[in-house]
Write a protein that binds this DNA or RNA. Structure first.
Lengths: 138, 138
DNA sequence: ATCTTGCTTCAAGATGTGTCAAATTAGAGA
DNA sequence: TCTCTAATTTGACACATCTTGAAGCAAGAT
């Protein structure tokens, strides 16, 4: 089941990784990144991702995850699907159970995009001293 | 205008920063983080954030930002509000223009939460060897 | 005071999201 | 085979999000 429906950005494709604060994110990059952040834009999905990542062995089955939440199984299944289609996790069936594990490259990429600029680079400390009379102080 | 309506998580309050993959994110932490990721869950907001961050002087006025998009002013204003209420950016009026700048601490926190576990720690390489017959290999 | 520009807020409509119950698929075992 | 458990899919509903035109507000210019 793993990567049958290739996610827009997955462990295979590693496009833009530049920090957001370094140069203006091009529209195409934004279109690629937004679905990743959207996948994390929910408390339950954040916890699911964390639970899977922290689980012993690096993976956990749905039944384990289900126990941590006060919702129905379809709801958990829905959120796992969102994470999977975003490329953040992969699933594998072994016997009766389905196991999920994280794709650390994707998380690393998201982390890198948000990373602060290494201190002391261009545009960092410069105050817009004479900006009172002109909007675009360029 | 800056921080009048205190965001749930802003530059002032710096709660959980642990990497997601290190220990299970508690529900409260997930509730705090999700709105931050939700604020970035849109291509336009990602670009807005990047544009503001990269702009000379560390800030830019709405008129500059507006020029970069093919939408109406209310739409840009709406997305800036989303970013502002999440605590990712702050606004300040100077004369006719309103300037936005990023809150780097918040971005740094999000980056830290997604950061990979420093290689070679517990649970990293352990394969679920005998997991065929038991779901929770704990 | 009036006009003009920059930006935000409002109201309304189209689209997307998250939840559940019910139905469905997949595999293990008797 | 038939049955049981694990997990997903489907359908329906309530609710949130995003867009726009129109209106409103703030500050500078005339």
């Amino acid at each position: 089941m793993n990567q049958e429906l290739l996610p827009a950005v997955g462990p295979d494709r590693v496009p833009c990784c530049e920090p957001l604060v370094r140069e203006p994110l091009p529209p195409a990059g934004a279109d690629e990144l937004a679905p990743l952040f959207k996948a994390l834009a929910d408390p339950m999905r954040l916890r699911l991702l964390s639970l899977v990542a922290c689980h012993d062995g690096g993976e956990s089955c749905v039944c384990d995850l289900l126990a941590a939440f006060d919702v129905t199984a379809p709801s958990v299944s829905y959120h796992l699907k969102v994470l999977r289609e975003a490329g953040l996790i992969s699933s594998e069936r072994r016997g009766t159970w389905v196991y999920y594990r994280v794709n650390p490259e994707v998380m690393a990429r998201m982390s890198a995009v948000l990373a602060p600029r290494p201190a002391g680079l261009a545009g960092e400390g410069r105050l817009p001293s004479g900006a009172q009379d002109r909007p675009g102080n360029a």
